[in-house]
Amino acid sequence: MHPALLGLVTIIMGVGGCVGYFWLSNIALDNFIYPPRGPNAGRNINRANIVRPWLFLFPALFALSVYLAYPVVETIRLSLTERVTQSDGSTTYDFVGFANYAQMMAEDKFWEALGNNMMWLIVVPALSTAFGLLAAQLTDRIGWGSIAKSLIFMPMAISFVGAAVIWKLVYDARPPGTEQIGILNAIYVWFSGNEPQQWLTVPFWNSFMLMIVLVWIQTGFAMVILSAALRGIPEETVEAAIVDGANPFQIFFKIKIPQIMGTIVVVWTTITIVVLKVFDIVFAMTNGQWETQVLANYMYDKLFRANDWGVGSAAAMVIMLLVTPILVWNVYNARKEMK
């Protein structure tokens, strides 16, 4: 069957199935299992209302358990086992304790990936938030601010792979003496007179070249959120500062920033999570060569190139471990808010 047709059938079956499930299960509950009539009418209505939330929740909970909760547990298990192919062709998973972790930590590539990830974790959220804050503050003060905002926000819609192509053109290098078609080398050669650089192959600095791509994408996100927060600041506080003779910089740093600190933290943590999962940019631009490896790509290498599920799972657990503080913090805040 043609995939497009298959897609259409899936949409119809998926949507029809969902609606049908919700509709039929509610009818069954109300009319047959606990009908609101007869001697137990009152009790039945109560029981139906106890069951109903779970009818509504069931498909979502099922999908969440299978697609997110179960993998977490399974990955922990896999990271502690080794896949062995027996002589009769079957595969078994032998418990090996922390051997996978030990093996991973003995690899230079792992430490390179972890080191790079740490650098990403500092640079990308910091720069994105700073640029986002700057853009938010500046665009809020001018007439064509909303147009400027949507142009800065635009990279959000571009895929990491598309962004990789866009920035590869920026970093492109032609042999010395010929005309440079990458803007960065064109400027570099023009100003310094040196030979053009293959930016993506210069260790240490090339990681920054990759980070710039993510900063370019995430700044728009930071700007949108922070701009809303800036507008939510009560006018009186700013007016009082003006009356007291504060200059615009003092107003910004001493009055506005402290009031939106909570939002800055949210933006920072959200971008941090994106950074921890960053894969496509590195995969498409350098594939971890020239010392640009990051954890997500390291893990992909282990899983699908080296076919080493044990170490791959261990690497995934390291990413999970790094996310956990944010996870706990988010849950803590969500619970506090509900009370």
Binding site: L68, V72, L78, I273, A296, G312, A316, M317, I319, M320
Partner: peptide
């Protein structure tokens, strides 16, 4: 679950 990295889900 909002922040669980996708990477964990791949192999399982």
């Amino acid at each position: 679950l909002l922040v669980v990295p996708l990477q964990l889900a791949l192999i399982p």
